[in-house]
Design a protein around this nucleic acid. Structure first.
Length: 699
DNA sequence: AGCACGCCGACT
DNA sequence: GTCGGCGTGCTC
């Protein structure tokens, strides 16, 4: 910690100079920590309030090298929140790494990952909240008996044995277990071991929706321990309270979404990343960090074990395990010996063609669904597209329901008779007739979950001969609080015959009575320009398949149906055999020959502007600048291209791919290049913003 | 990002 | 004559 004495205050009194990370976005140009004067020494990690321009902002005392000399007279710190224990050096190191790696300012990252409420508190209200937290001791160590732990399978036992041999050491383990193999039990036992050593455990899940279920499992097992959740669904007050409990060491288990990787945890003993392959771990705005990658780094930093779990690991993780950098633990069979669902590929080409219907529900699938209803079993029909139909169309004049502000169609939602743009949010009532020619006969093209629900209601019969009981779960049906929970409970209670949903239902939920899962129209991802689309599709379908037959007694009869126009595709062949390893190998071979990740490292430079010309010109200039840099030879900068949705809310979006053989080379280039872009920006009138995405997931 | 300052159109 | 539009620039 470098704190030097300065004597430049107006009244001539001696004072300390210290560095403070403050909340200032990347493009503000304030990329470093700022210097302030203080009358006494403050530990790094202490929360402070400081003047910045004409306002007061929250800051964190930062440990850093020698302060850069500055001409600006130092302003004094307004006050320090010393009631709060300072953030640890390890926490600061994690933030610093994140800022450097993802090319954002330290202050931006540090303040953005604190609970918003904490940034606004003054000393008095902080003291009040801390006092309230201090009151109740740990929830009575009443029923601590580990009486009824479920027996472990051999696979679970050997995974845990392997973890135990290096417990307390740093190191990453990949727990590769098929759906239903009991990964959660391994998490629970590994957590128990860390808790017994007096440590805290951090558990990451990809989606908010999955926290209640996992939280319940942990709460049931560790009834004598305090568990807190950290995710954006909490009220500001809850989030602050939970964060403080973690920070003060009162919470033994911290469970949350990607933001939780930054939880301040003084006695960290284990990090679990469930469904480590899930794209939701990548933050998509601001500092675009990967919570999974940061978890690995944090484990390394704090010398604790990191457990990455998945049935379909990301190829990056798989590759590292193959290289021996991660320890691989494999659980290839389901608990109770249940079989994986038999995969049936329905060749849509062989079905009689009906005019205008391209993605029909095939008769064999409808039969299979009907049979499940008769047998009082449940089915899940998966379609990754919400709304009634993706576009409306006028057959007379050719009008389509485009969004006036985006290069995208507006989706027809029949339930509330609206046309909605899923990109900018524009929502209007469906016009009575074609807006261009007045034709009253405008028709939906394609199908979303609303329409699928409607079609299934028409085509299936309930067990009593009446209407089938169909539930739909997607972002629309779960908008109001508690509605997802209510729908899930209806499914669990057997009040639903067929569950229709988007990927929201394919992930993680433990349905006991589902014996058939169907993917109605998954083909689009096979021909996406995004090289990761097949990996995502395979993971999603494997995960969806895993919803079937979770009750071992019914597993033998469970099936996964896939309707496709490309039944010979290698992805489906691998899916049919539940052969992740073969799929991963073929994908890695393709990636290797194409020089794509994990065999190269990517960054995307994005530019947003009112016109595509301005955005493109900025990126072209930026590419020219990059070519001048000493590290230019180590990277390839590709020409700018419009993003797949080129315009959103009247903003044109263009991006440029940067590729390098090594992470270090990419980092070197970005570190020297991006500062130049702050200056370049000023030369491009009409450029709204630029940003870099390191290790982008979608390109 | 805020929050200033700064120079041009429709109102009391 | 002012209120206010958002362009430009600065914050230790």
């Amino acid at each position: 910690v470098e704190i030097s004495v300065v004597t430049s205050l107006a009244d001539g009194s001696a004072s300390l100079r210290l560095q403070v990370a403050i909340e200032a976005p990347q493009h503000s140009g304030l990329d470093g920590v700022l210097d302030y004067a203080a009358e006494r020494r403050l530990a790094p990690g202490t929360l402070v309030r400081v003047p910045l321009g004409r306002r007061q902002v929250c800051g964190i005392v930062w440990a850093a090298g020698q302060a850069a000399p500055t001409e600006v007279a130092l302003k004094p710190i307004s006050h320090a929140l010393t009631a709060l224990p300072p953030l640890s050096p390890a926490w600061c190191a994690l933030v610093e790494f994140c800022a450097r790696y993802y090319q954002r300012s330290i202050g931006e990252v540090a303040l953005a990952v604190l609970p918003p409420e904490l940034r606004t508190l003054d000393e008095a209200s902080l003291a009040r909240r801390l006092k309230r937290l201090a009151a109740p001791a740990s929830p009575g160590a009443a029923d601590r008996g580990d009486a009824t732990l479920p027996p472990l399978t051999h696979e679970q036992q050997s995974a845990l044995d392997a973890l135990a041999t290096c417990a307390g050491d740093a190191g990453v383990a990949l727990l590769h277990g098929v759906t239903g193999s009991g990964k959660t039990e391994v998490y629970l036992r590994a957590a128990a071991s860390a808790l017994d050593r007096g440590r805290q455990v951090l558990v990451l899940v990809p989606e908010i929706n999955l926290t209640p279920q996992l939280e319940a499992r942990f709460a049931e097992r560790f009834s004598d321990r305090r568990i807190v959740a950290l995710h954006s669904g909490l009220t500001p007050a809850q989030r602050l309270r939970h964060w403080l409990r973690a920070h003060l060491g009162q919470a033994d288990l911290v469970l949350g979404t990607r933001m939780a990787v930054f939880a301040s945890v003084p006695r960290l003993g284990l990090i679990v990343v469930d469904e480590e392959h899930d794209p939701s771990y990548k933050q998509q705005e601001g500092a675009r960090y990967s919570a999974r990658d940061l978890a690995v780094y944090r484990g390394h930093l704090e010398r604790v074990q990191v457990l990455l779990g998945s049935a379909t690991p990301s190829l990056e993780t798989w590759q590292r395990a193959a290289q021996g950098r991660y320890r691989r633990l494999t659980m290839p069979t389901r608990v109770g010996g249940g079989a994986m669902p038999a995969v049936r590929i329905v060749d849509m080409n062989t079905l009689p063609r009906r005019k205008g219907v391209t993605t029909a529900l095939s008769p064999p699938l409808l039969d299979a669904l009907q049979q499940r209803i008769e047998r009082e079993e449940q089915s899940l029909v998966f379609l990754n597209r919400r709304g009634y139909a993706p576009v409306l169309h006028c057959a007379d004049c050719g009008w389509k329901s485009g969004c006036p502000h985006c290069s995208a169609w507006r989706v027809f939602h029949k339930l509330d008779r609206t046309l909605r743009c899923h990109h900018c949010g524009l929502t209007e009532r469906v016009p009575r007739g074609c807006p261009d020619c007045g034709n009253l006969d405008i028709a939906p093209i394609g199908r979303g979950t609303e329409r699928l629900e409607e079609q299934l209601t028409e085509l299936l019969r309930g067990r009593d001969g009446g209407r089938p009981r169909i539930a739909r779960i997607d972002a629309d049906s779960t908008r109001t609080k508690g509605s997802l929970q209510a729908s899930l409970e209806a499914v669990h209670a057997g009040e639903v015959d067929v569950l229709v949903g988007t990927q929201m239902v394919a992930k993680g939920h433990d349905f006991r009575h589902i014996t058939l899962v169907a993917a109605v129209n998954p083909d689009a991802a096979l021909f996406s320009s995004d090289f990761r689309a097949p990996e995502r599709l395979f993971a999603l379908l494997m995960q969806a398949a895993g919803r079937a037959g979770r009750d071992a007694a019914r597993a033998a009869a469970s099936e996964m149906w896939v309707q496709t126009w490309h039944p010979q595709h290698a992805l489906y062949a691998a899916l049919r055999r539940h052969d992740y390893e073969a799929f991963a190998k073929s994908q890695l071979d393709e990636r290797a020959s194409a020089g794509l990740p994990p065999f190269s490292h990517l960054a995307l430079l994005r530019a947003d502007a009112r016109t595509a010309d301005v955005a493109r010109a900025f990126l072209q200039q930026a590419a020219l600048q990059a070519a001048q840099l000493p590290d230019a030879q180590e990277a390839v900068v590709y020409p700018p291209v419009p993003m797949s949705v080129a315009r959103i809310a009247d903003v044109e979006r263009v991006q440029m791919l940067v590729e390098a053989d090594s992470r270090a080379a990419l980092q070197r280039l970005l570190a020297t290049w991006l500062p130049l872009l702050h200056a370049l920006r000023r030369q491009h009138r009409g450029l709204l913003r630029w940003a870099v995405d390191v290790d982008p997931l979608a390109i």
